[in-house]
Write a protein that binds this DNA or RNA. Structure first.
Lengths: 241, 241
DNA sequence: CGCCAGATTGAGGACGCTCAATTCTGGTGG
DNA sequence: CCACCAGAATTGAGCGTCCTCAATCTGGCG
């Protein structure tokens, strides 16, 4: 179980990545007032068409943004893990065009738009950092587009697993054995596959010795080969280190 | 043929959308110095891994951002038409993680990152507007993800046509009869289909009386039904009007 | 007139989907 | 402690959409 302080630390670390922040900037972020709120599995965080008034820092759990076709089929368009600000763009674009949901339960730290905008007005460096954070989100979406549009099922899933493994590692979760916190159906919604086909493809990955089942999720057995199958390259994630 | 001045006007109009700009802000943008450059069809504008030092305003033509799988298959991840700043995020994320190419020839107005950053530092309102512009790009990517991941071929293509029709209309191009400036192969790369299947699907759209061939591209015959097939809703484009 | 890129069409195949049944799992109440 | 239950995982069979690989056609241009 992570704490709000930890999550804020992770976020500041990311913000400071390519444009060093002053101690003052850093403190402005760490001192941001907010409200902690917990969510049940599949509970809506913001609804389609609503007008957001706060941004949400993920403290614990996994948050999914998704779109929905008329048929009811869902497509996850982004995943957020602890230390991610899952709603930052809403500070400049408040109308919610894609709802957010927790996948397996989550706790968020919600900060008002006014406070975010105030901080951005006072520090050009932070304004730029917020802008950059959204730009990174956009690059991840681009990579997902390539994944969903042009790769085989086995590459799609491997790619998603690699991405999550790297992101969890960056926040101190062990890579070898991590819990994704998503059902196979949700994995399908993220990759443009069916839950059923995700199941078969995971079995394939297991049979090929790339991953293995484990108590609380899945275990990565052969990282180099998984990366090769996924055609995975971390660059687009812009992770610290 | 559009002019640089026109393109800048379009962009300012978009920037001013949700956060009114002062006359001074507006002039700072319109006076931005830059260099006009023209590109041949399929010519690279920025290459993968390069470090961008300028942003590029589309003056004429269509610019595509794309990713490439190891198989060589391409996935377009964004399309930019006149009045779009196709590279704005590079001001805060200079390493190019997805190359840009003109589809059928283009002319760009290139502005240095230094000038953009300078303007952003001097005006918080403009900094926020730039941030918002990138956020809109992200929402469009999300919508594409839904399109590529969860819709049928006919809906995918209709959706892309609707999007482009709306965007072209917003810059004064007639909707009923517009030239997309893309080959059928490129349409496939944008929607996650094959060029061959795009061809068959376009025929289907023609047979159903939704579109028709025309001298310089395609003509939209039945806009309401096209929108219905596409499950299209303009909101995510955040167009002025 | 010949060339070339793009559009068009055909035939066959494959990957992932649909629908449905069954097993497994963890949590709950009796 | 066990029976029960809901949700998730797993498996099977059959099918359909879209892909692959070609061949042909078209229009623009040197």
């Amino acid at each position: 179980m992570n704490s709000v302080g930890q999550a804020l630390e992770f976020w500041v670390k990311r913000l400071a990545l390519r444009g060093p922040l002053t101690a003052c900037d850093r403190d402005m972020i760490l001192d941001l007032p907010g409200v902690t709120k917990t969510y049940r599995p599949s509970q809506d965080i913001v609804q389609l068409g609503a007008r957001a008034t706060q941004v949400s820092l993920v403290v614990d759990g996994v948050i999914a943004r998704f779109g929905q076709a008329r048929s009811g089929a869902r497509q996850l368009t982004a995943l957020y893990i602890p230390g991610d600000m899952c709603d930052l763009h809403s500070a400049v674009l408040p109308v919610v065009s894609a709802p957010l949901q927790s996948t397996q339960g989550a706790t968020l730290y919600r900060i008002s738009h006014d406070d975010i905008r105030d901080v951005a007005n006072r520090s050009p460096a932070l304004a730029r950092a917020f802008w950059r954070d959204c730009a990174v989100d956009g690059q991840i979406a681009s990579e997902w587009l390539l994944n969903v549009g042009r790769r085989s099922a086995i590459a799609k899933l491997s790619h998603l697993i690699c991405e999550l493994a790297c992101r969890f590692t960056a926040i101190g979760q062990p890579l070898a054995n991590f819990s994704i916190g998503m059902t196979q159906n949700q994995l399908g919604e993220a990759t443009g596959l069916t839950g059923v086909h995700v199941n078969r493809t995971l079995r394939l990955l297991r049979e090929q010795g790339l991953i293995a089942a484990s108590a609380n999720g899945l275990k990565i057995v052969d990282w180099p080969r998984l990366v090769a199958v996924a055609e995975f390259d971390t660059a687009y994630l812009h992770l610290p280190n």
